[in-house]
Amino acid sequence: MNFSYYPGCTLKTKAKELDMYARKSAEALGVTMEELENWQCCGAVYPMAEDEIATKLSAVRALAAAKEKKQDLLTLCSACHHVLKRVNDDMKNNEYIRTRANNYLKLDEAYEGETNVVHYLEMLRDTVGFDNLKKAVVNPLKGRKIGAFYGCLLLRPSGVMAFDNAENPTIIEDFIKAIGATPVVFPCRNECCGGYIAMDDKAAAQKQVERIMDSAVEHGAEELITACPLCMYNLDANATCHKLPVRYFTELLAEALGVK
């Protein structure tokens, strides 16, 4: 199984573990991740205004590159996944944006949203299959009580992201079960971590994190996992009273597969 892979800038710097463990695990699972050549930063946030074309172009380039290779585009960072998926949706369904973006890019063949954008977790669920993943686990994380923190970007808006039930998701819990640990469902798992507001208003971000941590601790989580470097930062650096260890899900995956 070969995928085009879009790592994104954070995975090359502050979130190297997220990337490294994903690659090792993929290898163990027989999935080939071919990093796109010359990818550029996706912009980290999806530009919502209709007239924002230029800020979407780097995403379109990545999508078109995957199309050329006739591969699905694999993502790992929640923010990159969000931006690529939504821009792809625009290229498919928004004629205005599609025309303008193609006019700018002057590709050999116009890009019209042909590429499938697949998150690493979706790849585990749909391509590998959680049952097969379970079989591949050599070091089940028995007895560990793990809370899945989804955040916003993977789930919403559900009409476009189509990742899971946005209000009651189960994919990461299913993942946790597959690697042999016990998932702890807590209500605030799809709340916002505070996001980029941490740059401007640390107190506001701390408030968000507290609420999430409270909820996770109360429901019995002993550690949290996430797919998003920004969630990781906020949960880790801006947690005030309760502090649970937070890890990237790929790290636990690698651990379970014995490739850490």
Partner: peptide, 11 residues
């Protein structure tokens, strides 16, 4: 109510 899980009916 599958699409209104913000109200937690299934949970």
């Amino acid at each position: 109510l599958d699409n209104f899980e913000e109200f937690g009916y299934a949970q």
